[in-house]
Amino acid sequence: MEHINEEQVKRRRNLRLLTNRVAQFIFMLSTLFGVIVLGILIYRVVSQGIGWIDINFLTGKLSTEPERAGILGAILGTFWLMVVVVPITMILGVGTALFLEIYIKKGRLQSFLQTNIANLAGVPSIVYGVLGMTIFVRALDLGNIVLAGGLTMSLLILPIVIVASQEAIRSVPQHLSEASYGIGATKWQTIRHIIIPAALPGILTGAILSFSRAIGETAPLVVIGIPALLIPLPGSIFDKFTVLPMQIYYWTLDASLVEEYANLAAATIIVLLLVLFLLNLAAIIIRHKFKKIY
């Protein structure tokens, strides 16, 4: 013990232990903060809305009378929206990711594209709404139908799907693709037989999480101009529509007029949260089911 003075160590010991305790306490408070807020939120929503959820609520059409109002239209709208969003983002997102990871030569162009995609992921959703309105609703003259909304939502979540897919593709060990190239496989054969199967869990997890983002987004659809009026149930992607979060938005706005609208909003939130919870669960199951074996 040439440099370490035992006396000094003893004197500082209490202070060190105290600092450690304080740090632990602060970190625990930070964690609790999130949990408590979430708890209150869920308690409020559930206590206000749970009594309003019944089969009529889930299968009923919109109505100005709270007792008769249902959200079937919004559920169908969300469904049709996903019919547009899922294939478009999967094809464009995974395609872009494969191009950037496998085909393009590393260099200026690649890093330019990469930076821009990363930046796109940070653009506020309302800006995408404005873009969607300008291009899909007005310029292409689609009107505020499911297709226009779905295309807008696809733009919004594409950067996330691309980045998540890129990470999944990159995590496939290089020695596997080398083995495939080494036998004379083309890039496409290697992608199809080696890379996609190995990267699929990662790609799906990222995609599902961004779908749940699209299901919960409201701002772009507000800009596109989803009617608050009573509309017929959407039967295809070419119909006018509303979605669950939009319904929450309008009922919350009008809660000052009709008090029960607040309960309807809460009930819709419960349904929306359940949908999102199920999607997250699916993502977790996929992640665990296809645990990496290499």
Binding site: H175, L176, A179, Y181, G182, I183, G184, I194, A198
Partner: peptide, 17 residues
């Protein structure tokens, strides 16, 4: 075609999953 005629065995065994 070249890689069809010229096989390769790598340093670390790298079978496919």
């Amino acid at each position: 075609e070249l890689r069809l005629r010229v096989g390769m065995v790598f340093q670390k065994p790298n079978p496919f999953p």
